[in-house]
Design a protein around this nucleic acid. Structure first.
Lengths: 209, 209
DNA sequence: GCAGTAATTAATCAAGTGTATAATTTCGAT
DNA sequence: ATCGAAATTATACACTTGATTAATTACTGC
């Protein structure tokens, strides 16, 4: 019986491949479908390698969660561009309600992970860190945007606005990604922008640029 | 070796007990922790009974999901009271951001279930039905509330407002239930009410009653 | 009281899981 | 070319899972 041929890969690409295979498995089969065998199969590798690179399956999942969240925030942040604050805030809003952030696959993976947060302290920490990073981003943008308009708000009020905007974006993101509703992409962006404009008390037309 | 003593129960109460045990298991241990053995242990019963009353473990989980969603919507609906439309909408908002709807355990169970929706068609249907029921409720309340204030909106605009309010409530619900932030209950209700008032374009003071 | 029926238990099974380890192969250094 | 170290595979193990079935028990109607 001849063994299967294989070729070596540097540690970084093997890790990346395994994480990608993990996220694929979770997206298609759910967390319970992301078994060691399924993941290694998708990565074109045998189960033993997972142990080599991640020790545990648990650590692989955690690593995958970290990468997933980092990519998600990076996508959102990339949508901001580098214009004036108000435009950056609008860019963030748009990014949150359009692919690749607002997307069925993304939501599926997010949902699978979220389901573990309450009963797994490590996953909880990963979640908390990512969540805080995102809300800090919003908070910063809101503060700068209001300052740009000459309306300096107290830290308290900025924080409250950020909380509400964050909640709205989260909710819209879920609704859109779930795909139950049948609004076109343009509608979605307009609704999101108008709502955020209303919430921070500026003119919708101004905000739409 | 003497067998353990047991007593018979009517079908309805056994089913209810098993479902309750399932939800408890999921809340504390996650979906993967809700094994047939764990559930039957919590229900004070042996694993065989699950098969008798639900055929599959899968059907038990689906039944539990249905009950969970129905209870959740019932809680929200109960918060509406039976006053005028605007007061009912305010009641709904308050209910969504306070226990037992906004609550760590509730969120944990919801999250666990949500993680299965994308890869399980049956769970997806249960979710869709519950989601639609909730948004219909909001849509109805918004329509009546606006009519009460003499501002009759087109179906389209009511629908859009309902989508946005629904998203905001979802997002706030998640934020609050997750418990990461440290706002007091009064703040939460006020923030939610003010935000919804702003979104539907009425005076916040009026809305707070 | 007693018999019969239905609920419940107990025990077992096959399949799938994560993990461990030894055997093999690849590939760079020499 | 070849040797040696490191990456990868193959195999096996112990355990947990959901499912199945036969034996037992509790309750109902008479």
């Amino acid at each position: 019986m001849t063994r299967r041929v294989f070729h070596r890969e540097p540690e970084s690409v093997r890790q990346k491949d395994l994480i990608a295979a993990t996220l694929d498995s979770i997206a298609e089969l759910g967390l319970s479908g992301a078994t060691v065998r399924e993941v290694s199969l998708r990565a074109g590798v045998t189960p033993g390698l997972i142990r080599r690179y991640f020790d545990n399956k648990e650590r692989l999942v955690i690593a995958a969660y970290k990468v997933f969240i980092a990519d998600l925030i990076a996508s959102a942040e990339a949508g901001c561009g580098d214009g004036p604050p108000l435009a950056r805030l609008a860019g963030l809003v748009r990014a949150c309600v359009t692919p690749p952030v607002a997307d069925g696959r993304t939501l599926a993976i997010w949902a699978a992970f979220i389901g573990t947060v309450h009963s797994d302290p490590v996953m909880a920490k990963v979640h908390r860190d990512g969540y805080q990073a995102f809300r800090d981003l919003i908070e910063r943008l809101v503060a700068e945007a209001m300052a740009e308009r000459g309306e300096a708000l107290s830290k308290q009020r900025v924080r409250q606005k950020a909380i509400v905007i964050n909640a709205l974006l989260d909710g819209l993101w879920i609704e859109i990604s779930m795909g139950g509703d049948d609004f076109s992409r343009l509608d979605v962006v307009r609704i999101a922008l108008d709502s955020v404009a209303t919430l921070i008390g500026i003119d919708a037309r101004t905000f739409r640029e």
